[in-house]
């Protein structure tokens, strides 16, 4: 009998899932628009548009790098978590001097842009990014959403 009750008492614990999270696999078509005549590799980050709650609620939390060979259409497939975050926003900049740095000291012309992918959450989304703001970080381009 003791074995019976032992198994009975332990049964609710066995088979527990440690964590359960929700994700969406989204294919984003990005149109990168550069100032006329400029063409160079583009780098940046995918951001959660919002994250956190209360005093910790904050825009633009980067979670994945972005890279493209140059302006034009780029298709990216991302696995995006949905728990505790909202929205999908791309920040990117053009590496005109090829140094891998966005506007290293003394450089003043590498353009950047910010755009929100819509609709989201969804399995397909689009974003248009105009790279027209030299040397600004994502935070400087954020206008409140």
């Amino acid at each position: 009998m003791s074995r019976f009750f032992l198994l009975l008492s332990l049964s609710p614990l066995v088979g527990c899932v440690n964590s359960r999270t929700q994700w969406v696999e989204v294919t984003v078509t990005t149109e990168l628009i550069a100032p006329e005549g400029l063409s160079a590799p583009v780098y940046g980050e995918w951001n959660h548009t919002w994250s956190g709650e209360g005093e910790l609620r904050v825009p633009l939390l980067p979670f994945e790098d972005f890279a493209a060979e140059g302006p034009g259409l780029v298709t990216t497939t991302l696995l995006v978590p949905l728990d505790g975050v909202e929205g999908l926003t791309l920040y990117a900049w053009m590496d005109l001097d090829g140094d891998g740095l966005h506007c290293a000291p003394g450089v003043t012309d590498e353009p950047a842009g910010l755009g929100e992918a819509l609709p989201f959450p969804a399995t397909e989304a689009d974003v248009t990014l105009s790279l027209d703001a030299p040397c600004l970080g994502a935070e400087a381009l954020w206008d409140g959403g």
Partner: peptide, 9 residues
């Protein structure tokens, strides 16, 4: 705070 050190704002 995710702000560039050269942020002009």
């Amino acid at each position: 705070q995710h702000v560039r050190l050269d942020d002009p704002r």
